[in-house]
Design a protein around this nucleic acid. Structure first.
Lengths: 199, 199, 199, 199
DNA sequence: CTGTAAGCGAGACGGTACGTCGAGTCTTCAG
DNA sequence: CTGAAGACTCGACGTACCGTCTCGCTTACAG
């Protein structure tokens, strides 16, 4: 039962598998895709998939990371609001496309697969959350953001609405959603100034 | 093939199915539960399930609605912030419990089942969103909330972070998350007033 | 884990399975045949085979019994030698044909499958051995056969050489082998009468 | 792709493979043994087996020949019946032991592997049959055996019943079976002399 | 008050995919 | 430059559920 030797790994097979996984997760869709179908399309034995990945979800996660997700270094122009807008718009654009449904499938699979959930957080979410937090810390130091806030929660406030639409599908993710989220979040929901008779 | 006659429906079987569905979705978990298992535990033929529901998801959705979700009329004490806090805390409390995982399973299933997605929105989400929007409209009229905002987006801003944690599981939903969300959302992220040199 | 209910059994499926099993055991051959192939050719789910039989061997055994093996009531003309010749020639004729190879495959499978071995003995061998023994007993009573012999061993002596050729394939089973076996066995191997000077 | 050079062959590996094959064919049994398992137990790569043998059967055949089967030169005391008894009892003794099951496995494998079948005949059966035939020819010349018989058939008559029990497993091979076979075969099945009214 | 047609528990059916095993081939690396 | 190690493709294994389809058996309405 030793783990397989990664040095002996066939790089061609690996790529073929990731490509097939990505294509099938896009077209018949994540749930409609079987490990068997991935193997067949990749021209690979099923065992070669099970040798290197724990589950279909793990394969698609790797495929998404390698083939679809940009490295996404967080922009820093000095204006945190503009940078957030740039960044969130990028995410929204991605989620609108087929990658969005693939990612939704992944989140779906992670609901009852703790290992996949952890890996997804570590390889997709955490790096981006960290990059965002660093940017927000700089913004705090530059006086562009309240200092008395938990940045993790700020991030959830900004991204939550995006994933809300992706996953509940009450309405599609749009590219102007980010601007509106940012406006709401920075300005706050309190009424502007009370029209008559505020202190 | 006419639809089955609802008057002839066996109420006992219906309840046994919903109960079994709820229990199994809680314990082995939604995805680990099969229609067959529900039928067996409910002491019911599989056909009786397929006669009245389209899928496992549809059964669990009904079960959740009937057995777990409160009617949740939105409170109105006159203080919108307090009311939101009450309401959101209720939701958070529910999501922390096993119902949270069941609901997550449902969201998961809805990712590739348009019909289930629609039903879930109609029976679970929409009524609560509507109640919330009405409350927020009242708040706007009473000057407790900015008028220049899309209420749908406000709702997404408030609830998004809750579901973010439920579905990504980066950290558990907590009962003080709502208070913090509301604080951030109402106060906004802008720095208080710049210490030196603002007009 | 209760056994399936035989009353609910689909007779059509059963026949299709036996026929497919027989055909495939004949053409690609017993060992080259997979349960999967039988299922496919019979237009049947694999589970339907596994529900009613323990193994491929068990299916083929039933197929052989139902489709290929005659009921073979042992003849009784009053002349035991003639009757044995008739009977053994019938067996040899069968073994020469494709049924012979199917049966050989079955014997092969039974080498490491005790349950199959037992069933094969009970359903194929034993009934024929019993019929033969009864005929031989009658022959003994009629003075056509030595009385001081174990009939089981006589049967092995008569049939052993047939199966020797079937299974070792040193030479093919032929239709005149039986006559020769019977001659040898009845006359015995001792020299006729010693030509010169026996005591 | 020339045949591998036998001079370069690693004698240690060869022995380890044969030993492993023999042990595994004895304990988990022939059919339950895989080439992979033999390689692992012998501490040898699978390729090293496939380089020198065509199949598992071929390996076990060699193992049996080299490790289990005596050279068995046919005895000749001048009394053919005694010699046959000696020889057949030796065979029966062997077949009763684990070698018997290994051999049965081999016969089983040979049913659908013509090449193995031929090799088995050539290396195991034929030499012993030849030795036996020579002994029987001498017996014929010495007037201890009918002259008007096909010796091949005599051999089948004598050995057939032994293999009948080995392969059908209706009852175990025993060490007194040979004596009884020989008695039947030499004396013949005809009744002694009819009690009343023979000259 | 009695057919008869529905819903019901049960579970066999044709399928699809699962995750595993082993076959036989091919590649890498150490001695 | 052989041989151990083992990754590869492939095919089949036996199992789990899917959703459909009979089966008899209540059960309740219609004649």
């Amino acid at each position: 039962m030793p783990d397989p030797n990664p040095q002996r790994r066939n790089e061609e097979a690996r790529k073929a598998i990731l490509t097939a996984a990505m294509e099938l997760s896009t077209d018949p869709g994540f749930q409609a895709t079987s490990v068997e179908a991935i193997a067949k399309r990749a021209g690979v034995g099923k065992q070669t998939i099970y040798r290197w990945w724990q589950s279909k979800g793990a394969v698609v996660l790797d495929a998404l990371n390698e083939l679809a997700l940009p490295t996404m270094s967080f922009p820093d122009t000095g204006d945190v609001i503009a940078d957030l807008r740039t960044q969130l718009t990028g995410v929204a654009t991605l989620l609108r496309q087929s990658e969005g449904r693939v990612f939704a499938g992944l989140v779906s699979a992670a609901q009852n697969d703790d290992s996949l959930s952890r890996t997804m957080i570590e390889t997709i979410l955490q790096p981006r959350v960290d990059a965002c937090r660093e940017r927000l810390e700089r913004a705090q130091r530059q006086g562009q953001l309240r200092r008395d806030v938990d940045l993790e929660e700020v991030i959830e406030l900004l991204y939550g609405p995006l994933y809300y639409r992706l996953l509940f599908r009450t309405q599609p993710v749009t590219t102007d959603q980010p601007a509106q989220i940012i406006d709401l979040a920075f300005t706050g929901l309190r009424p502007k100034r009370s029209r008559r008779g505020s202190p």
